[in-house]
Every structure is written in C-alpha cells, then in structure tokens.
Design a protein around this nucleic acid. Structure first.
Lengths: 255, 255
DNA sequence: TCAAAAGTGTTGCTAGTACACCCATGT
DNA sequence: ACATGGGTGTACTAGCAACACTTTTGA
C-alpha cells in the first residue's frame, strides 16, 4: 500500500505535513474492489504517478481512532464515493519482504521526495517505505455508480478484467487471487448484498455474472431454479428488447 | 495481547530492556490453541500474574524480520514446545478500543511497572498498553503432547472447556467464538492435518471429537461411512478393551 | 446365552444435473 | 410461419439421513 491521504484529508494534504502520528505504523488496508461489466469481472487498480509502469491496489492506513472495518469503509468511500457497500475482510498478508515493491523501493523513495518535499520529510518517507502488514478487504460495487477518485501519487484508476491484471507492487496480484477465491465461496449467500448488478436485471445477467466469477458455464434452466430457490429475488415486469424472442422477466432483490 | 517475550527470547529478558524496536508496534498475534480431552473441546488460556482474575489468550508480537505466519508458528512453539502444527489464520480484529482491557488498563500499567522497572520503562509500558490490532490464528494440538510454558506476566496456563471459558481481556472471548466458527467450516478437509487425536484412535473417538466441535450428535453408522469415504484413514488392528462388546478397529491417518 | 456396542446393509428423501419440451416475440 | 431465446416440467443420479439388521466380545 502506498497512497496516503485521500479525499477527506485533502485539507491536511494542502495544509502541511503528512501526519503519520494519526495512523498505525506498518499496517495498511488494501481493497480489492470488484465490479462487473461486459460479462467480465473487473478490479479497480491504480496506476502510480511515478515509475515506468507501476500498478497497485487502492488502499490506505488505519487511523488511531477508527476500527479496521471503519478504515476499510472509509478508504472505499474515498475512492469510489460509495457508502453502505458489501465489504468483507478476507485475509491478512505479512511477509517480511512486504516493503513497497522491494525492487522499486528506491524508485518510490525518490518519487516521494520529488513529489512534495515539504510534506514528506525523510521520516515520513521511511514510514511509508518500511515493512508493512496489510489486511485485505474486498468490495462489490456497481461499476456504473463509481466515479473513481485518485489518491496521492496516483496517475489514474482503472477497471481491469481480472484475467488481464498487470504485475502490481508488493504481493498485490496474490491478494487479488486470494480475494477472488474468497468471493467464490458461498456466493449464493452473499448475493443479496451484492452491488455488482444494476438495480433491475434479468436472470441471464445473473447467470453471466456467476459465469464471470466462477469462469464456467451454468445451464440456464437449472440456474434459474437454483437462484429462485434462494428466495431473494422478486419478479417485476418483462423486458422488451426488440429482439425476436420471448421477453425475459426483470428481477430485483427483495428488500 | 499482553505477554511479551517468550522462551527463545529469555536471554533478552534476562539481559535487559524489552527491545520494542525488534517488533511491529500496535500489531499482535493471538492464538486460539484447541485441544481435545474427555469428549470436550478445550482452549489453552493463561491466567495473568496480576489483577484479581485476569485471563487472556496466549499471544505475542511480530518480529520485523519474520512473516506473520512464522510469528504465529514461533509463538505456538514457544508456548507448547510443538512444531509442525496445523495453524490457520482466521481473522484480524481491530476495534479502536482494543487497548489492553480498557477497564484494566491502569491495573496492567501498574502491574508492568512493579514487574520489572529496569526492563519496562514508561516508554515500553506505553508501547504495550497502546491500541492494538491483532491477527487471530487457531491451532489444533494433541493435548497430551503439550507442556505449556508460561510467558511473562503469566501465572499459569490452563486447558479450559470451550463451554466454560472465563471472561478474558480485550475481545478474546469473541476471538475464540470466531475461531470456533472457522474450525467448524470444512472440518473434513482439514481432518488429516489435525493433531487433536492421538496417533491411533477408534472411529468412536473421531465421532466424539466431531460431536465436541459441532456440539451435536452424529449417528455412528452414517458417520463411519462419511469418514471412511474421505479416504484419509487406514485401518490397523482391533482394540480389545476388555469390554463385553465387539472390539472396534483402530485407525490412523494415511501418510 | 445375553448385554453392549461395533459394523454393515437397505430404503427413502432431497438437491443437483441432464434432457426434452412449450411459450412469447418480432421479422 | 419461423427462428430465437425465455421459461418450465420430467427423469435420472449422487449424497445424505433414518432404520433395521448381523457380528463380535466378555461376563
């Protein structure tokens, strides 16, 4: 985890030094933010503003005054603008070499120095580039409702198919793999909490989402029975697309 | 988590100050060490050497040079003398009030001062009694092979039935509940890694272990079929107990 | 021969899968 | 009418639970 302060700490960012005392040292939260579009499961990742081609998961630090769950919610809110999102802690990562990109460490340090010498003195740079343990959370969001906001040292954020992720800093690729595995477990039970789909959707869309998550085909008829059996959907009207076939029903999650 | 240094750091303990620089601050590992005896699932907990009736989970801190998994293994080894034990990280806990026993904080601080003023100066006391995030691991051990070793500030360690745990410091009771829940998930798949049973055992003993873990009865016939279906046991001879009934088979885990 | 408990066999239920079929829609 | 895909019904299978039964052991 690299990026430091975010939207709600912009005042501090503008006003002065990075207040490392506000945060727990050597402990970060990394978020695997899942979205879904074009039949693909996507992850929101950030391109760092220095280095040739450095990518990373969005993350942040934990304030002394907040719980780790609150920190994860805050970080997610700061990046996506979204609140009340399904968020699950799935694992902590703590190899002794979890230092900002081992091979990139010097690059990062010089990048930080150039970024804002006023704000990042040597002490702060040491803080940021020390060995970190991170707690991984994953979130499920409606990609269309997200207006990604960059953090410090980030050039831009991007939705990338989980199949086509670039090499990222730290062990972030392994973290995504681990999040993906956690997501696959008991998807049915979590379904109602998911925000991956728009408010109203067809059964085919649910099926395609499952296919993206599990990377395998589900026969429509049995899938329909299974999902309806969960008793979490309510059937609304029909959706007339203009296609020359029977109009599918539209569903939404029961409240 | 409170107890600090353990067996392999006895030299340091004797020689001088608690070297807080060696550890990650505000981050601890707590171990829920499960054992099994007399048809009861038990947890190893420690009675603290100050306070009227303070109990806690054994735990420790993470060296700057080791991974969190290694730290957990080390802590387990220091306390139980056991190596190569099934150990699973199940969750991180990080409420903002996870300060050594909120209500007991002053008690702990004065206890530390009296314990060894040379070793624990004010700075070290502040370090130990600051807000902590902890990563929970659970282990499964053969209770008979364990020779529990106390850590600092501990009066003794004790195996207590999971049903009869006393109120512990921090949120340690909630941590045990969470570990118990994690243990119940996919017990079958982990079975072969378990050290809860002696090297050789009968099917009845496996059944009683399951009953202790899940707190419900399993009919013997179906249970037998299920466990044998896992293909992880090999049948040895028979066990003649002298009871006036058919002698049960003895099993062990396949290697 | 009997009580106690180990071990096996048989039946029935349920959840999931595979297959077949009918229905609505726009050309 | 017909192609296209939506939706439903039926048969088959595997896994699990409930019940009944036989076998072994030592008194």
């Amino acid at each position: 985890m690299l990026t430091l302060c975010l939207v709600d700490s912009i005042d501090k960012r503008i006003m002065g030094k990075f207040q490392k005392e506000d945060y727990i040292a050597q402990l970060s939260i990394d978020c695997v933010i899942f979205g879904y579009k074009n039949k693909e499961l996507k992850v929101l990742i950030s391109k760092l503003s220095y280095g040739d081609n450095l990518w990373s998961l969005p993350g942040g630090y934990i304030l002394q005054t907040e719980s780790i769950d609150d920190a994860a919610s805050r970080i997610l809110r700061e990046r996506t603008g979204l609140d009340n999102i399904y968020l699950e802690q799935f694992k902590a990562f703590g190899g002794p070499d979890r230092i900002i990109g081992s091979e990139f460490r010097d690059l990062v340090r010089s990048g930080l120095r150039e970024f804002d010498p006023e704000r990042f003195d040597e002490e702060a740079i040491n803080w940021v580039t020390s060995r970190f343990v991170c707690i991984g959370y994953y979130a499920l969001v409606d990609l269309n409702k997200v207006d990604p906001k960059i953090g410090e040292f980030e050039e831009f954020l991007k939705w990338v198919s989980i199949e086509e992720l670039p090499k990222m800093t730290h062990d972030h690729n392994a973290i995504v793999t681990s999040a993906h595995k956690a997501l696959r477990q008991n998807l049915d039970e979590k379904l109602i909490w998911f925000n991956l789909l728009p408010d109203e959707f067809t059964m085919r869309e649910v099926k395609e989402l499952y296919e993206a998550v599990y990377d395998k085909e589900f026969p429509m008829n049995n899938f329909q029975k299974k999902i309806l059996g969960l008793q979490v959907l309510e059937r609304l009207g029909k959706k007339f697309t203009g296609a020359q076939n029977r109009a599918p029903y539209v569903y939404r999650f029961k409240k």
